[in-house]
Design a protein around this nucleic acid. Sequence first.
DNA 1: ATCAGTGCAAACTTTTTGCACCGCA
DNA 2: TGCGGTGCAAAAAGTTTGCACTGAT
Lengths: 151, 151
Amino acid sequence: MAASQADRVEQAAGALLRVEGIRFTPARRLVARALAGAAGPQAAGELHATLRGLLPLSSLYRTLAVLERARVLAKEHDAAGVARYELAESLLGHHHHLVCVACGEVRDVGIDPPTESTIARLVEAVARRAGYRATGHRIDIEGTCVSCRTA
Amino acid sequence: MAASQADRVEQAAGALLRVEGIRFTPARRLVARALAGAAGPQAAGELHATLRGLLPLSSLYRTLAVLERARVLAKEHDAAGVARYELAESLLGHHHHLVCVACGEVRDVGIDPPTESTIARLVEAVARRAGYRATGHRIDIEGTCVSCRTA
DNA sequence: ATCAGTGCAAACTTTTTGCACCGCA
DNA sequence: TGCGGTGCAAAAAGTTTGCACTGAT
C-alpha cells in the first residue's frame, strides 16, 4: 500500500542523509514522503500547496536543495522553465516522462527492461560517434493525456 | 558553406512569417541567422552577446517570442532552467541533444533514420500503453564532451 | 555551548510588460 | 495616418540568500 512505499523512501532518504552527516529533520521527512506519493516531478509551488503551510517556501527550497545534494532527489525543469523535483533514480528506479502538450502534466513512465536496454545501446552508439562518453539519457515523450483528449 | 545555410534559413523564416502576416524585420533576420549558425540551442544572454548590442535584451526576447509563434524556432530549457532557443525542427530537421554534465554545453546530434524510427516505434508503444497519444519525443543524451574529458 | 536548521524579508536573475516613440505601408 | 515594431524602464515570477533565532546534541 501507499504507506509502505513512503516508508521505504523515508528509510532510504534517512540513510542517504546520514552518510553525508546531514540530519533527517521533520521538514525533510515531510518532503521526502510527499515526493514518494507523487505520480511525477513536482514544482516547488505544488509541494508548498500540498504541505499546506507546514513549511515556508524559502525553507522548502532549502530542504529541496539539501535533499538534492544528498542525492535523495533530482531537480529538473518543465517546459515552462519551472524547477520540478522528484525522487532520485536510485530510489525510484530508471524511468522516463510522459508530457502532455495540452495541460503540461508530467507523469512518470517505466520502460520494460529489454526495450530500455535496446534504447540505451542505440543512444550510447550515437554519443560515441559524436565524441561523447554517455553516462545516461532522458526521454520525454510528448503527447496528449487521456483527459485532454476526451475534454 | 555557412552562408548558404543561413540564407536558406532566412528564406524559410521569411516564408513562415509572411504566412502569419508578420513582418520580417532586420532584427528578426539577424536572430534567425544567428540561430542558423549555432551548434545547439542558445540562451537569450548568449544571443545578446553574439549580437553585440545590436538589439536590447527586451527586444531580443520579443523577437524570439515572435519567431516562436511563427514556428521559426523552438524554445526549451537547459538543466539550469534558462530558456534556450533553436531553429524549429521543420527548418533544422529532427535531432536530439548531447548534454555535457560537466560544462553544460548542449549540442545537436542527429540519429540515423533507421535507428530513429526504431526508437520512435518503441516510444510510441510505451505511450500508448500509458494512455497517451504520442506526438513526438525528446532525447537528451547526458555525458561528457571531449574537452571536459581531456581537461 | 555549539552548530545545524528554520523563518522572515530582502535580493537576485531571468523574463515579461507598459508606455512613448519611430517609421514603413 | 495608422499600426506594427522598437527601446527604455519598471514589474512579475521563481529562486536564492543574509541574518537573527531556535532547538537538538
